[in-house]
């Protein structure tokens, strides 16, 4: 419990707004208790900046326990840091050495414009979801929940795909800024469930088209997305999406 004290040098991307050019700025953080979380370390730095009259560093965050997907930036070239299956809010300072230099940058992708410092606009994900990430069943029209049996393996696989928190690390870690893991996970969740069958083809086509229109890149099988995903979502979801998409294209009547 005791907590060591460490000091770090931070190089942080500072950008006033989407319209402005940004640049790196350097900060010394001294005597940080290594039991702090990474975001708490930034809180401490921000309080110091405010006290000095400087604008604090802006970053998205909310739940601070790895589930809402709000947080995320790049630490020394790795989305959410180099630790595995973690969001940046779950990262603790005990993972760092005294005297280290850390470079913090926002997600970089054409489809995720920077809003300020480490905060980006990920609304493209919402638009992809709106294109088809649902079953068209309106409130009140559902049948009894146990009237459709679902094999446990399918339910579990659908769940694994559904654990995506929409943080955007997959896009940020991909040299093409591809959103295939995000879209593949959503398509898979529904493709694996009986409830998703009715709109299966329409869904995958609409979501993929929207993804392309938002300016995300193509997948060239680098698998960086899987490595960066805080929920460990597998690239097999991308393969499934590709199969679904091909099938939909073949059976396309229109």
């Amino acid at each position: 419990m005791s907590g060591k004290r460490i000091s770090l040098t931070l190089k942080v991307w500072r950008q006033e707004s989407a319209k402005d050019a940004g640049k790196m700025a350097t900060y010394e953080v001294k005597d940080i208790n290594d039991e702090m979380s990474f975001l708490e370390m930034l809180d401490v730095l921000n309080e110091q900046l405010v006290t000095k009259g400087e604008r604090p560093i802006t970053f998205d965050h909310d739940c601070r326990e790895g589930i809402c997907g709000a947080c995320g930036f790049v630490i020394n070239g790795h989305a959410h840091s180099k630790e595995k299956e973690i969001t940046v809010c779950q990262l603790h300072m005990r993972k760092f050495q005294d005297g280290e230099t850390l470079v913090l940058e926002p997600w970089r992708a054409k489809a995720f414009p920077v809003l300020q410092d480490l905060m980006v606009d990920r609304s493209a994900f919402d638009r992809i979801q709106a294109a088809g990430g649902y079953t068209s069943v309106h409130t009140g029209s559902a049948v009894d929940a146990n009237s459709i049996l679902i094999p446990k393996v399918d339910a579990d696989a659908a769940f694994d795909a559904a654990t995506c928190i929409g943080c955007g690390a997959c896009v940020a870690s991909c040299k093409n800024a591809s959103a295939m893991l995000f879209v593949g996970a959503k398509v898979s969740q529904f493709a694996l469930l009986p409830q998703g069958q009715v709109e299966r083809e329409r869904r995958v086509k609409a979501m993929v088209e929207r993804m392309d229109a938002e300016g995300f890149g193509n997948c060239t099988n680098e698998y960086e997305c899987e490595a960066a995903c805080p929920k460990g979502i597998s690239v097999t979801n991308i393969a499934r999406m590709n199969r679904e998409f091909l099938k939909a294209a073949v059976t396309d009547q229109g």
Partner: peptide, 22 residues
């Protein structure tokens, strides 16, 4: 009860038994 029905219809992947029931 209707809430559970609605959520399942939306594709919410609730935990299931081997027999396929919730």
């Amino acid at each position: 009860s209707s809430i559970i029905d609605q959520c399942v219809a939306q594709g919410v992947p609730f935990a299931r038994e081997y027999g396929g029931v919730l």
